[in-house]
Computed example of a mutant assay.
Amino acid sequence: MSSTKDKITGNTNEAIGKVKESIGKATDNPSLEGEGLAQQVKGKGQQLKGDVKDAIKRGVDKA
């Protein structure tokens, strides 16, 4: 997966996670709220993965 695709997927997971968390809070559903929080963490990890790929590519391009 390319760094851009990782970042897009990460942003998508974060956004969906925030929606799930909000719906979970609004409906008093702790399971859905927790699922949303977990999906947000997953999204942040995917974005970080994309950032690392970019940093490695920049390092290789300089060499």
Rank of each mutant, 00 (worst) to 15 (best):
K53N: 04
I16G: 01
T27K: 13
Q39F: 11
E21M: 06
M1T: 07
A38Y: 02
G59E: 06
V19P: 00
K44E: 13
S22Y: 03
S22W: 02
K42S: 11
A15V: 08
I23N: 00
Q46M: 14
D6K: 15
D54T: 03
G34N: 08
E21L: 03
K44G: 07
K57N: 14
G17Y: 00
G59Y: 09
E33K: 10
G45C: 12
E35H: 06
K25C: 01
G17T: 00
E14P: 05
D51F: 06
S31Q: 10
G34F: 00
V52T: 05
V19T: 13
Q39E: 11
A15M: 11
E21G: 01
G50R: 12
K53C: 01
D51G: 03
G43F: 08
N13I: 06
A38T: 04
K7T: 02
A63G: 12
A26R: 10
G59H: 03
Q40P: 04
L32V: 07
E33F: 06
K53P: 00
K20D: 09
N11Q: 15
Q39K: 10
K7C: 02
T12D: 15
I8W: 06
T9H: 09
K7Y: 02
K53E: 01
G43T: 02
Q46I: 10
V19F: 01
Q47V: 06
K42I: 12
Q47M: 09
I8G: 00
V52F: 11
K49C: 06
T4D: 13
G17A: 04
G24D: 00
T9I: 10
I8C: 05
I56D: 03
E21H: 07
K62W: 01
T12W: 09
I16L: 10
V41G: 06
G36I: 01
V19G: 05
Q39P: 02
K18N: 04
A15R: 13
K18L: 05
A55K: 08
K20H: 05
I16A: 09
S31N: 14
K49R: 13
G17D: 00
A38L: 09
L48T: 11
A15H: 13
